[in-house]
């Protein structure tokens, strides 16, 4: 018994040493974490960089803590989350994509020796998606248009969680900024409901729902034929995913920056919805989805 323990300890010790030279690639446990983490992993592997796969490691605090502690080297994070990492959630800077990215990059660079690489042009923020068969005839793609349309008597019924309906920075903020008001009849409140439930309600027109609370890159959006409204007056913080890497590791492998730049630039909102959908709706393994996307778009050599 004891000898086995010693042996396995010795084995893990050698593993730990071997791991020193490798770039530890990680990500959050959610669907998009699986897709983005596997994309980073595939790109680095393809470039001949030795990696250790810790993709879908855990929840946000765990992954963030692990990166700061140097236990992982790189993982994709959302720009808007920097507001919470640095405990400054109420500042307007996070609502502008470029400013939010710059601020996150600056703070983490100064305080944690972390580098935010090029973000994806996709905003995975809290918002509303409308059924395509409603949005297209009404010509609605942005929240401003949506506000005018609703104020002008457009027939909408929104499925959302009670948190979205009631918390000040969510629906009330959208209503104030875009000049519309949803009556109780126009709301289906799913208490404790997640976006899976709201999207399904809108998709199946449960109780007449034709709009849903969503996160921008939810994998169900595309298959459910919903269109995400653009937050054109920046009510919500911007959540653009970007690879965050330890400066020390980037210094050893400076090519990572240029390797990941074109890849993340290619990840638009629709692309991410599609990739997430392949994992979430079709049930394909995230690693396969990532590789297939990279190959199909000539991003792997």
């Amino acid at each position: 018994m004891f000898r086995t323990l010693l042996l396995s300890a010795a084995a893990s010790a050698t593993l730990a040493f071997a791991a020193q030279a490798q770039v530890v690639v990680s990500s959050k446990i959610d669907t998009e974490g699986g897709v983005l983490g596997n994309i980073i992993l595939a790109v680095l592997d393809n470039a001949g960089i030795e990696t250790e796969n810790r993709v879908q490691l855990g929840a946000t605090p765990v992954v963030r803590q692990a990166l700061v502690a140097g236990e992982i080297d790189i993982y994709p994070e959302y720009t808007g989350n920097a507001a919470y990492f640095f405990n400054r959630p109420d500042e307007p800077v996070w609502k502008d994509a470029a400013a939010a990215y710059a601020e996150a990059k600056k703070l983490d660079g100064e305080q944690n020796k972390l580098v935010w690489l090029t973000p994806a042009p996709a905003n995975n923020t809290w918002g509303v998606a409308v059924r395509r068969d409603v949005a297209e005839p009404a010509g609605v793609t942005t929240f401003s248009q949506f506000g005018q349309w609703v104020a002008g008597g457009g027939e909408v019924k929104l499925a959302a969680s009670s948190e979205f309906v009631n918390s000040a920075p969510a629906l009330p903020a959208f209503q104030t900024t875009y000049g519309f008001t949803l009556s109780q009849d126009q709301l289906i409140v799913l208490s404790g409901g997640d976006t899976a439930a709201t999207i399904q309600a809108a998709s199946n027109q449960t109780s007449g729902a034709n709009a849903a609370m969503v996160y921008g890159t939810d994998g169900q959006i595309a298959v459910s034929n919903l269109v995400v409204l653009q937050d054109d007056k920046s009510v919500q913080p911007v959540y653009q995913p970007a690879p965050v890497i330890r400066a020390e590791v980037l210094a050893d492998h400076p090519e990572i920056e240029t390797l990941l730049k074109p890849v993340f630039e290619s990840l638009t909102l629709e692309t991410l919805q599609d990739l997430n959908g392949k994992v979430q709706v079709d049930g394909l393994p995230a690693a396969d989805v990532a590789k297939e996307y990279l190959t199909a778009n000539g991003l792997l050599k």
Binding site: A13, A16, F17, R54, G58, Q65, A66, A69, E71, I72
Partner: peptide, 10 residues
């Protein structure tokens, strides 16, 4: 401890 594979995560 590090050599024994002890980490904060995992």
């Amino acid at each position: 401890a590090h050599a024994l594979g002890i980490r904060g995560i995992g």
